[in-house]
Simulated scan of single mutants.
Amino acid sequence: MHALLDPFTTEFFSRALLGGGIVAVICGVVGTWVVIRGMAFLGEAIGHGMLPGVALATILGLPLLLGAAVSAIVMSGAIGALQRRGRLSYDTSIGLLFVAMLSLGVIIVSHSRSFATDATALLFGDILAIGSADIAVLGVALAVTVAVTIGMHRAFVATAFDRRLAQVLGLRPQLAHIALVGLVTLAVVASFQAVGTLLVVGLLIAPAVAARAWTTRIPTTMVAAACIGVLAVAAGLLLSWHAGTAAGASIAGSAILLAALSSGTRALLERATRLRSGADTPTTTAAGVTPALADPTQIPERTS
Rank of each mutant, 00 (worst) to 15 (best):
M50Y: 00
M50R: 01
M50W: 00
M50C: 06
L51V: 08
L51F: 10
L51D: 03
L51S: 04
P52Y: 02
P52N: 11
G53P: 12
G53D: 09
V54L: 10
V54T: 08
A55I: 00
A55N: 06
A55H: 04
L56A: 12
A57E: 14
A57N: 15
A57M: 15
A57D: 13
T58N: 13
T58Q: 13
T58S: 15
I59M: 15
I59A: 02
L60N: 13
L60K: 13
L60E: 14
L60V: 09
L60R: 15
G61W: 13
G61S: 12
G61R: 11
G61K: 15
L62M: 15
L62W: 15
L62A: 12
P63E: 06
P63Q: 13
P63K: 14
L64E: 08
L64V: 09
L65T: 09
L65V: 14
L66V: 11
G67F: 04
G67V: 03
G67H: 07
A68L: 03
A68E: 02
A68D: 02
A69M: 10
A69V: 03
A69Q: 03
V70M: 10
S71K: 03
S71W: 03
S71F: 00
S71D: 02
A72G: 10
A72C: 08
I73G: 00
V74I: 14
V74M: 12
V74R: 00
V74G: 07
M75V: 04
S76G: 09
S76M: 15
S76H: 04
G77T: 06
G77P: 08
A78V: 12
A78T: 14
I79N: 05
I79K: 04
I79H: 05
I79M: 12
G80I: 03
G80L: 09
G80K: 05
G80V: 03
G80F: 04
G80D: 09
A81E: 08
A81P: 00
A81V: 12
A81C: 06
A81Q: 10
A81F: 08
L82Q: 05
L82Y: 01
Q83A: 02
Q83E: 07
R84Q: 11
R84H: 11
R84I: 05
R85P: 03
R85H: 11
R85M: 07
G86Y: 02
G86T: 04
G86L: 01
G86K: 06
R87G: 13
R87Q: 15
R87T: 08
R87E: 13
R87Y: 03
L88I: 12
L88F: 13
S89V: 02
S89D: 04
S89W: 02
Y90M: 05
Y90H: 14
D91H: 09
T92N: 11
T92S: 14
T92M: 12
T92C: 10
S93N: 15
S93H: 07
S93F: 03
I94W: 00
I94F: 01
I94D: 10
I94T: 10
I94H: 07
G95C: 08
G95H: 07
G95I: 03
L96T: 06
L96H: 02
L96A: 15
L96S: 05
